[in-house]
Every structure is written in C-alpha cells, then in structure tokens.
Design a protein around this nucleic acid. Sequence first.
DNA 1: TATTGTTATACTCTATAACTATA
DNA 2: TATAGTTATAGAGTATAACAATA
Lengths: 152, 152
Amino acid sequence: MTARTTATAPTTAPTPPTPHEELARQLTGIGAVKRELARSLPPDCPPGAAAVLTVLDRHGEMRLSRMAEFMAVDISVTSRHVTHVADRGWIERETDPGDGRCRILRLTPSGRALLTELGARHTAALERALHGWSVQDIDALNTLLARLRSSF
Amino acid sequence: MTARTTATAPTTAPTPPTPHEELARQLTGIGAVKRELARSLPPDCPPGAAAVLTVLDRHGEMRLSRMAEFMAVDISVTSRHVTHVADRGWIERETDPGDGRCRILRLTPSGRALLTELGARHTAALERALHGWSVQDIDALNTLLARLRSSF
DNA sequence: TATTGTTATACTCTATAACTATA
DNA sequence: TATAGTTATAGAGTATAACAATA
C-alpha cells in the first residue's frame, strides 16, 4: 500500500552514526522493553514501588537518603515511592533511634512474599521474550549494563 | 555515620538473582542513564522530539503510522511528538497525494541542522562518561541492545 | 544554621477513548 | 463500514522549591 508517495528519494543520505550516537539511539529505544516488562507487574505495584523492594532485598535495611542514591532519583521522588509501598504494608518505616530525622526502611514478610512474586513474573516475561538467548548472552548484557550505569 | 541503627542483621539472606531477574534490575536502573543523556538535549527538544528526527534521518520520509511502529509507542503519542517538531519547523507534514488520510513526514533543512547538533551533544555526553570504554565494548553493547529490542 | 525527610506544583511521557476526515 | 490521524482525559514518573522536624 502507498507504493510510492512523492517519488523523490531522500536528497541527503542517512548520516552514518558513530558508536556513541548509536548507543544514544539504542537507549532511547529500550524504553519500549521497559514498558513491556512493567506490564507484567501486579496491580498496585508500579515500577518505582518494585524498585524499592528490590533494593531493600539486595542491600538490606537503609535510610531513605541511601535508597535515593541507589535508585538514582531525587529524594522527594523516593519518598513518594516509599510511601506507596509502606501504605500497603510491604515495608516498615522506623524512626532511627539514633537520629530522629532519619527513617529506616525495612522489608516486611508481606514485602518478601511480593518480591518472590515479582521475580517470578519478571523471569516469566523475559524467558518468553528471550527464548533464543544463551545464558552467556544475558550475562554479557547484564555486565555491560552494570558497567554503563557505573560510568554515569 | 549511623554506624548501626537496629543492630539486627537481615534475617533473610538476599535472594541470589537469576540472570533474567538481574536483567530486569539492570533495565530498571538504566533509566538514570537515559535521564542524564536527556539533560544534554537543547531546549524545546525533549527526548520524544529528538526520536522523531532520528528515525526520519535513518529511515527517510514516512507516514505517521510507520513512525509509531519505529518508536514503539501509540500513534496518539507519536502524533503529539510530531506536532511538536512540526510546530518548530524541523519537519514538514504533507498530505499524501494518493490517500488524503495519510500524512507524509519529512525532515526540513532546519531539522537536519538540529540533528547534527543532537548528534554532537549525544556524542560529547557519552564520550565524557565512557572514556574508559573501547569501541569494541560499545559496539558489543549496541549489538546486544538491538537484539534485546527485536526480541520484544 | 545545617540536614533529613515530606509535600505542593509543574512538566514529560504514555495509553485509552472519543472524534474528524477520507476511503 | 473501515482506516489514518487528532484531541481530550487520566495515570505514572520526575525535578524544583517550600516546608517541618531534628541535630
């Protein structure tokens, strides 16, 4: 359909991208993958909430300010995500006995249970999409992405 | 600071992540890199607008519906981004002579000039962050990301 | 006075649905 | 009736700035 519309070939050839420009392109396009993955999350648990739980699972209880560093977003944003998961009983927020300004975040059993569910859903969604991938390929991608994050 | 807060070690050890779960984690964390890259864009040119220009540069003039496929977002979202760049004269929207419902999108000279600027800014931002990376590493990451996108 | 965290406001991106115009 | 595109509305994520409480 619409075999030929204006019949004029592009007057300028596509600029051959440098590896850096190509990386910028790929990172832009990766948003679709993230959205697809987010669709597999349970209701009431948006990506930001899932990130809070995952960080606590990996790094143990911590203050809000440290959580904000791990999530690499502003502390005000972190506070909202944390409120979301605390309201649903997935974490508890205890006032630091040593410094009344600080809140200690800690997973609850309910939060751990949800975390198991999250892992299963992520794994299922990715296994379905990445059926042709070897474990080595996935590990290689993980390694490069981790390195990319630490470079920023 | 805050040497020890509750003095209780986490009762449950961190769940060792599978490669799939780790990939989900990495993809979540990559948002920070994207935001950092977006900060290098010129004013009036948000990431969505830049994506429209880049797709046109790489694949030539096309209809809106095809642009939506390349961007992997809903056509209504694409329409808004396209309106943004058209309002600023970076592309032109011509009604398809063969089908009055279709709009043909085409870069203008002004759009090509901006595209050159975008490439320079992306390259500068990434070169600064990725100074320790070899071209082979970047190419490997690009290849894996492209493969990931096509797997979805 | 400085720091930790919360809340108010505004902006970007996204999807769904209703709508217009053309085929 | 079906399709291409536009617009209205709503929801999620983010940052800045103003604020409250504690050190």
